[in-house]
Design a protein around this nucleic acid. Sequence first.
RNA 1: GCCCCGGUAGCCCAGCGGUAGAGGCAGUGGUCUCAAACACCAUCCAGCGUGGGUUCGAAUCCCACCCGGGGUACCA
Length: 960
Amino acid sequence: MSETTPASGAAEAATEPFRYSSTLAADIESRWQDVWEKEGTFNAPNPVGPLSDPAAGEVSAKPHSFIMDMFPYPSGAGLHVGHPLGYIATDVYARYQRMNGHNVLHTLGYDAFGLPAEQHAVATGEHPRISTEAAIANMRSQLRRLGLGHDSRRSISTIDPEYYRWTQWIFLQIFNSWYDAEAATARPIPELVAQFESGERATPDGRGWSELSGAEREEVLGEYRLAYSKEVPVNWCPGLGTVLANEEVTADGRSERGNFPVFKSKLRQWMMRITAYGDRLIADLDPLDWPEAIKLQQRNWIGRSEGARVDFPVADGSAITVFTTRPDTLFGATYMVLAPEHELVDSIVPAAWPADVPAEWTGGAGTPAEAVAAYRAVAASKSDVERQVEAKVKTGVFTGAYATNPVSGESVPVFIADYVLMGYGTGAIMAVPAHDHRDFAFARAFALPIRCVVEPTDGRDQDASAWDDAFDTYDSVIVNSANSGVSLDGLSVTDAKARITAWLTERGIGEGTVNFRLRDWLFSRQRYWGEPFPIVYDEDGVMHALPDSMLPVEVPEVEDYSPHTYDPYDAASSPKTPLSRNEAWVNVELDLGDGVRSYRRETNTMPNWAGSCWYELRYIDPVNAERVVDPANEQYWLGPTETKPVGGVDLYVGGAEHAVLHLLYARFWHKVLHDLGHVSSVEPFHKLFNQGMITADVYRDERGFPVPAAEIEERDGGYFWQGEAVKREAGKMGKSLKNAVAPDTICEEYGADTLRLYEMAMGPLDVSRPWDTRAVVGSYRFLQRLWRNVVSEATGELVVTDEPADEPTLRALHKAIDGIRADMSGLRFNTAVAKAIELNNYLVKRGSTPRAVAEQLVLLVAPLAPHIAEELWRKLGHDESLVYADYPVADPVYVVDESVTCVVQIKGKVKARLEVAPSISDTELEALALADPAVIAAVGDAPIRKVIARAPKLVNIVTG
RNA sequence: GCCCCGGUAGCCCAGCGGUAGAGGCAGUGGUCUCAAACACCAUCCAGCGUGGGUUCGAAUCCCACCCGGGGUACCA
C-alpha cells in the first residue's frame, strides 16, 4: 500500500465516510461483480443439454430474449469509451428484460482471427495466438469492470479449435450442397448425383454419369456446389498479399483494409454461391425489424433487376446476348457495346475495316484487331480511379463487326467500351442512346444515330438531334416501334415490356429474366491466421472433403506467419499461401475410405467473415460436442414466433459499417443451414439496431498534427497546448488522433455506474455524439443524490422513512415508472435517465424519501446503474440480488395529474390559463374558458368566429 | 450526381400538430470552508438552419434551399 494517500480523498473520507465517492463506488462495484460471477447470476438455462438447469424449472414456458452485440475483434490497443457504448446499451436492455421475467441470453465472444494479429506477429515474432489471447484477456477485464451481465459460459472465440471445428463443418455442409432452383432450397449433393445416375438430369456433354472419370464428375459437381473452387476473375491485392471479396474493395478500387490498390486477376479460388440466394435475401428482408437504411443498402447491393435477355445475331451465325431492363426500347437500339474483355470480341472482329467507317471509330488503327488490342491495352492499364475520373468522357472503339437488331432488322455496329462492365449482366448491352444517359453520351461522341422510341413528356421534340441528354422515364408511351409482327406503339412502358418479351420468347430470340448485381462470394484468402479448409487433393489433383471425424483441421505451426506481400502496384504478382510453408503439414497420409493414400492439403484459409457468419448459433449451445447446435435449443432461442415470423435473435446491436458484408454473409449461411434442416429459423437477426459513434474533439497544432486532447487548456475562448494556440475539430476517437479516453480512467475517477449512466444519457443510441469528459460529473452527482436519498453519508445508516407516500409523491413515482418503462422498451435510454433524475430530484426537494418509493426508484435505476442499485437494495433489507426482481409497474390511477393547466389562446396567442381536471370534456372546458374574466377582457367586443377546444390542455378562440 | 440521417439555449440533448424545455454540462450569485476542492441552493441563457406552403394553431406536416455527418457511384 502506498503511504501517499491523496489528501482530498483522506479529508473526504474523514468527514463523510459513507459518501458515494469513487472509492466507495469502486468497492461496491468490485464486490458485486464478484458476487455475480460466483453465483453465475447471468447464466441463462437452455431447455436441454449441458447448459440446462433442472432447478430453473420449465424453461421453455418462460418468455425469453436473445440479446446480442456485434462480435468485437480483440484489439491489442485496449478499449476507449466509444467501444462499450453498444455493450452497455444491450446490457441495460437485457437487465430490463430479466426484470420483466424473461430468460435472457446475453454474452459476448471474440472474432479473433484476422490481419492485425498477423501483422503484429510479423513485427514482433510473437505467435498470433499468444497476442490474440492476451488481447482477449485484456478486453475481458476491461469489460468486466463495467458490470456487463454476460453469461460467461457462452463466450466463445473463433480461434478456439472447438469453435472453428464447426466453422469447418458448416463449410463442408455448404460444399456438399447444391441449390435446387425449382424447389428454391439447398439440397445435399448425393441427391444431385442420384439425378445424374438415373439420367433424370443430363450431364453437360450428354455422356452417362458412369462414363465420366472422377475428375470429370468433380468438375460437373463443381458447377452446382454452393462452395466451389474455380478459376475466376478476382480482386488481387499485392500490398496485402491476398485476394479480396468484392465487398472488401472500395468504389475507387482499393482495399477497404490498408487502402492498397486492387487488380483484376484470373486465379483459382474458393467461391460461395451466394447468388443462388439473391431472391430470398431480398424477399426475407421484409419481415425483419431493421432500420430501413440498412435494408435499402442490402437491396442495392444485391441489385435485383427484372428485364430480358435478347439475342442479336452476328454475321458469322453466332449471336450476342444482352441483358436489358428496358426491352420496350428495343426498336431504339442503334448500336451495341461489349465489355473489352468479352470473349466474343475476338471471334467477331473481321480482318479489315468495312467500307465507309468513320475515322473516329477506328482509333486510328489499321485493322479492327489492332484497334481492339490497342483499346484493351489502354483499358487494362487504367486503374479504377482513373476510369472513374474519366467516367464522364466515353471512350471505345469499333470492332468492325455488325449485328442485327432482331426487331427492326437493322444492322447495328458493335463497339467495345469500358463503360460496359464484364461483371454485370452478360457483359454486353444494346445501346438505346435516346433513353439512356450513358448511351447518349457515347452516341454523341461517336456520331451514332439516336432514335426516339419513348414519347417525350417534357415538351421536347421527337427528333433527337437537338437533345442535350437522353429522355429517361417509365411514365410515358412507346412510339416508332413496330414491325410486321409486333407493334408497341401507344403502349405504356410496362405493357410494352410484357408485349415485346412475350414476342421474343415465342421466337426463341429472348426471354424475360432477372439479373443480380450481387456476385458470388470469394471465400479464400492467402493468410496464416484463419481457418484452414477441410479439403485435400489426391495425387490426380481430385478434390476430397475431409470427413467430420477429421475435424478440426488445426492451424499448423509455420516458421514465418507473414503473408507474401508485394509492391502494392505489382499487378503481375500472384498470391502464395503462408500455410504452404509447412511441407510436413501440407503432405499427409490419410485413409479416406479406400486405404491410406497421399494427399496435399488445401493451403488457403477462410476469410475473416467465416467465424462471424454463425456465432449466434454457437452462443446457444457453446459446448455441444455432437452438433453445431441442438435443435431444441435453437428452436427455443431463435425459432419463428408470432412476432418474429422468420425467427432470429431478438435484438442485435452494432455499427452500421456491417450493413452489407457481415449481415449479408451471415444471412446466407443461416439460410443454407435452414434449408439443410439444421436450424428452424430462416433469418439470424430479427431486430437490428445501429448504435451511433462516440466522437471526440481533435486538437491540431499549426502544422495540422493532432496534439493530446487531455492536455488542452481552454481560455479566452481559445484552446492551447503547451502555451500554443491549437485548433479544435470534431473527429473519431482513437489513438492516432490523440483523443482516446479509456473507460478505466472514468471508472477510477467516478465508477462504472457513472460511466454507464453517462453513456446512456448522452443522447439517443442511434446518433453519433461528442464525448465530453467534463460532463460526466453530472451522472456522478445524480448517483450521489440517489445514495443520499437512501443512506446517510455520515453514518451509512438508512435514512428512508416508513411513512406512506403522499399522493403527489405517488404521482411523481408512477409517472416516472410509466415513462421509464416506455423508454426502456424503445431503447430510449437517454430519456429514461432524465426521468429517473427528475424523480430523484423531486425526492431531494421533498426532504425525505418514503421507503416504498426508494425501493421502486432503486429498481427503476437498476438496469442502468446495477452496482449501486444492488448495494442500496441490500441496505433496504433484501437478501436476494435484484437482477431477477420485478421491474416496477405503474398504477394508472397515479399516472395522470390531479389537475392540468389549460391554456386559452385567442387567435393562437396565449391569453389565460385555467386549472382543470384531466377528465374535463371539450364542452365544459369551452364554457369555462369563455367565462374567464381575462378571456372576456381579451376578446372585447370582437365577434367569436370559432372555438377549438382540445380537452384538457387547450382552448383556442378565433375572433372576428 | 443520387440515397439516407441530423440542424432547438454557449455545449450535449427532450419536445415530433396545441403554454418552446424533461435531464445534464458550462457560466453567474450564494451556502459550507481559514481558504480551496467536493457537495448543496439559486439563477442567467434560445424562439427552434433559411425561405415558402397547409392549418384556428407549425420546432413538429409538405415543398425548395443552405450547412454538417454517413452511404453509394458508368449495374444496362
